[in-house]
Amino acid sequence: MLANTGLKSRAAFDQLYLATAPKLFGVLIRILKDPIRAEDALQDVFVKIWQKAGSYRAGEQPAMGWLITVARHHAIDVIRADRRVHDDLDDHHGLAAGGPDPEQAAIAAGERGRLQHCLEELDPQKAEAVVAAYVEGYSYQELAERFGIPLNTMRTWLRRSLASLRKCLDDG
């Protein structure tokens, strides 16, 4: 029974890999900023997925969202463990300049209208901080450095921004 189950799972796993590996690899490259490290991380992420698959509950969350969550958290674990300080911070200062950045364009294209709308309700810099924290996996420390504000202020910014976001999303 176990062997049979294993075979079935393996076929399904292959299919899952085929369908989702590029997206997850994109997540890992984006957060780790290093394709080689991202390759190793992708292996680790799929091992985790294989091990944790039983804990996924279809009613709670879209499967893709769950997988991306696994990938993001793994990537963040990696960079946190690395205690790595981004040496390419300067490249990202452009984030603070106005205009639609790639992330927001992608969100719009993805028809995530409500989230887009609620992010627009925030102060632009704070919205950018939320998006950068999520998409790039930045820590409070990194965010504080990027936006040139004290760490505690950054914490307050983000927490308030998330609270506002929640109110906007849940009320909308």
Binding site: P22, F25, V47, G65, I68, A106, L115, Y134, L165, L169
Partner: peptide, 29 residues
């Protein structure tokens, strides 16, 4: 919260991983 923020996932552009990743993964699993 994960569901609320999942819209930001669209920011991740898919990139095809090298085939060797899957191969190594299969060897591990």
């Amino acid at each position: 919260w994960q569901n609320r923020l999942s819209g930001l996932d669209d920011a991740y552009v898919p990139v095809a991983p090298p085939a060797v990743v899957k191969k190594r993964l299969d060897e591990r699993l």
